[in-house]
Amino acid sequence: MANILLTRVDNRLIHGQVGVTWVNHLGANLILVANDEVSKDTIQQSLMEMVVPDCIATRFFSIEKTINVIEKASPKQKIFLVCKTPQDALRLVEGGVKITEINIGNMHFSEGKEQISSTVSLDEDDKKTLRKLHELGVKIEQRRVPDERVEVDLLKHI
């Protein structure tokens, strides 16, 4: 079984909070970004790798590739799995990836979304997806950084 320390939904994917703060907190040695678009975009990958310390490996896989290879990971790999959307995370879970907990970090506001905290806005599809993940037994929390208290009960918003 893959050693997934935490799965985070953050539409910014890898940035300072992910590449340094969360990695240090979790003790991760691999950040795996699971997103179809970013898996093909070497420019975005290069920009994201700039904020990650050299001692931390990064991988940029499509959802399908993640489903197919994550269980082959070495037990030495301590994986911090990062998805762009809750829909990406649901596809992973439905594909058999053993995700027990999801941290919602950042989901930008846009038209049609309800802002439920300073960093998280949800539309109806997001709410439906999070409900489905919850029904599948995935614990869902919302925190920007590890030492922040969980202030928003996402379940009452979905």
Score class of each variant (00 low, 15 high):
79 I>S: 07
24 N>K: 15
116 I>E: 03
74 S>A: 09
27 G>W: 11
3 N>L: 04
9 V>A: 02
89 A>Y: 01
44 Q>M: 15
122 L>M: 09
65 K>I: 05
30 L>N: 06
143 R>V: 09
102 I>S: 01
121 S>Y: 11
116 I>W: 02
21 T>D: 11
38 V>N: 10
117 S>G: 08
34 A>P: 01
3 N>F: 03
67 I>K: 06
5 L>C: 02
31 I>L: 06
101 E>R: 14
55 C>D: 15
118 S>P: 07
143 R>E: 02
72 K>H: 14
49 E>P: 04
76 K>Q: 14
125 D>T: 14
5 L>G: 01
108 H>S: 15
5 L>F: 00
65 K>L: 12
70 I>S: 01
48 M>V: 10
148 E>L: 09
30 L>V: 15
4 I>L: 03
107 M>Q: 10
49 E>S: 15
94 E>C: 11
49 E>L: 05
2 A>I: 04
136 L>Y: 09
11 N>S: 09
33 V>G: 00
85 T>G: 04
80 F>Y: 15
40 K>I: 07
134 H>Y: 14
139 K>T: 14
96 G>K: 04
24 N>H: 13
129 T>K: 04
75 P>S: 14
125 D>P: 04
131 R>E: 14
36 D>C: 06
114 E>I: 13
43 I>E: 11
128 K>G: 05
147 D>Q: 12
109 F>N: 13
24 N>T: 12
53 P>T: 02
69 V>P: 05
60 F>Y: 13
32 L>G: 00
25 H>Q: 13
40 K>C: 11
153 D>A: 09
76 K>W: 08
84 K>N: 07
139 K>S: 13
58 T>Q: 07
19 G>I: 13
19 G>A: 13
57 A>V: 10
64 E>P: 05
131 R>S: 15
155 L>K: 15
12 R>L: 13
123 D>I: 06
124 E>K: 15
155 L>H: 13
28 A>I: 07
146 P>K: 06
152 V>S: 03
114 E>R: 15
87 Q>F: 07
59 R>L: 12
39 S>D: 04
127 K>W: 07
98 K>Q: 06
43 I>C: 09
22 W>D: 08
59 R>Q: 10
144 R>H: 10
50 M>W: 06
120 V>Y: 01
76 K>M: 12
65 K>N: 11
149 R>V: 10
78 K>L: 12
5 L>I: 03
6 L>M: 15
90 L>T: 04
127 K>Y: 05
92 L>T: 01
41 D>C: 12
156 K>F: 05
150 V>G: 05
60 F>G: 02
132 K>Y: 03
70 I>G: 00
153 D>H: 12
131 R>H: 12
141 E>Q: 10
29 N>Q: 12
84 K>D: 01
